[in-house]
């Protein structure tokens, strides 16, 4: 059974431990601006919503890539960017309708969540279990995907 990140915004306090952890894992420093997971603060509503790639089946980013720089990780099912192949054209960043693959101006390549190879640092750092890494069918991700499918031109 493949696992997915399960996000429960109701539990999130907006502390950004996940962003710190993500940047530490992937960039080696504390730098939330480079985090693959982003917590949005709906101030007026008193709500915090962590948000990252759902590793969607369509993988718009992967399909749009002109040079095959995004590949499926056989173990985790994540769509991973191969940094040395990415040419930095950014087409994936406009293709992904969720806005979860982003251009990193310092590296000239794109970055996205790769589930840390199966041990996501964000879930580990989250003090409230707002982010957990659980069996895929338990995540309610399907709901997000169903919604996302509205973006699809040709649902098969």
């Amino acid at each position: 059974m493949q696992k997915s990140l399960h996000i429960d915004p109701a539990k999130c306090t907006g502390c950004l431990q996940c962003e710190s952890a993500c940047s530490l894992e992937n960039e080696g420093i504390f730098n939330p601006s480079k985090s693959r997971i982003k917590v949005f603060n709906f101030h007026d509503e008193g709500r915090f919503v962590p948000y990252t790639c759902t590793q969607c089946d369509e993988a718009w980013c992967m399909q749009a890539c002109p040079v095959d720089a995004i590949v499926i990780n056989a173990e985790t099912g994540s769509k991973d960017v191969l940094e040395d192949i990415c040419v930095g054209c950014k087409v994936c960043t406009i293709a992904c309708p969720f806005g979860t693959i982003n251009y990193n101006t310092s590296s000239g390549k794109v970055v996205k969540c790769d589930l840390c190879g199966g041990d996501p640092a964000c879930a580990d750092a989250c003090p409230t279990q707002a982010i957990t890494y659980v069996d895929a069918n338990a995540t309610g991700l399907d709901k997000m995907r169903a919604w996302a499918a509205k973006t699809d031109n040709a649902t098969s």
Partner: peptide, 18 residues
């Protein structure tokens, strides 16, 4: 409404109210 945290805080004592 809920509690909110400051940066990196795992206590989250902040009150968010209406």
């Amino acid at each position: 409404t809920t509690n909110g945290a400051c940066y990196a805080c795992t206590i989250a004592c902040g009150r968010i109210s209406t």
